[in-house]
Nucleic acid binder design. Structure first.
Lengths: 170, 170
DNA sequence: TCTGATCTTTACGTTCACGTAAGCTTTAGC
DNA sequence: GCTAAAGCTTACGTGAACGTAAAGATCAGA
């Protein structure tokens, strides 16, 4: 049960002439395989706004992606697994990410006043800090758990050694 | 939305004479409040075998718990939150925990042969190792994420300082 | 003993995160 | 241009993890 990645790929992986690497040449199935998930999940994530709609899709046509989208998807799934939050919460977290991207875009332009730039950066910092706080909290708790398990393990091993020593002191 | 812990407790917390601390004197609502969850969840966990049935309950009567059960429940919820596994998987993990408890019980008895003791300890060690591997994996990944976020944060702060320096060099 | 808060079981409802099927269209290779 | 594979939308189905409502039993305190 649950074998989402059929390893057999009948159709060749689309030679993708115009090998510009940023020309959208990946179909949803390809993306799904590369990210180890399913097309349904990708469409679902797009539907709830967790992923942006496929870039420049002529209505009625198939979705086409670039490698960048694959990586974004993998990152989303990574965060989903690690943070243990709902997709809705994850969305707000990633929306913050988007904002940061927008900040970078703005910062690269010349016609933005210093005042505005500082504001943007401040906001971005706030987002990062909120994420960081969440991650740090979980990370710390997990490390505590790890520590506790290590202790337990140590004790068990000690007992076992004691037993072995007493058993055969040959 | 989601305010499971009504802070108002009308009835006094049951003076619990026989203050033996291990005489079951906590009702399901008390346990729920202490563990910051709901009675429904406790019953559900008992139903699927994630928690043992309430100790020594005369059929038809109310469930009664001790402080130990509260702590166990809190631990279960902690693991649920941190490990991000299904309750079913969590159950098998905790079943291993149970086995370890049983090992301790056996080990405290005199009439168990060394051979058997070593076996039990070996098995327990195996369980611990499997848990530890899982925890370590997640912990490491989370730390990586934390590290990445820290880097991002640093860069943002540097940019902000650069901007401030250039803005008002008074 | 009586009373109201709390608990009991039973059972149906709900939300999330997708899975799956149907019917049709697009795409890629020949 | 034809065809099979893959994709499209729409919509209903599903499993997990509880929420909620009903109808009655139990419990603690006066």
């Amino acid at each position: 049960m649950s074998a989402p990645a059929g390893t057999a790929s009948k159709r060749s992986p689309r030679p993708s002439m115009e090998a510009g690497a940023d020309t959208p040449s990946l179909r949803i199935g390809d993306v799904a395989r590369l990210a180890e998930t399913t097309p349904r999940t990708i469409r679902y994530y797009e539907e709830i706004g967790l992923l942006p709609p496929a870039p420049a899709r002529p209505s009625g046509r198939h979705r086409l992606y670039t490698q960048a989208e694959v990586e974004r998807l993998r990152e989303v799934m990574r965060l989903r697994n690690l943070l243990g939050v709902s997709l809705e919460e994850l969305k707000t977290l990633l929306t913050a990410e988007e904002a940061r991207a927008e900040v970078r875009a703005q910062l690269s332009r010349e016609d933005v006043e210093q005042e505005r730039r500082a504001e943007l950066l401040q906001e971005a910092l706030g987002h990062i800090d909120r994420q960081l706080e969440l991650v740090r909290h979980r990370s710390a708790e997990l490390q505590r758990l790890e520590q506790e398990l290590c202790e337990t393990r140590k004790r068990a091993r000690r007992k076992l050694r004691e037993l072995d020593a007493r058993d055969e002191p040959s």
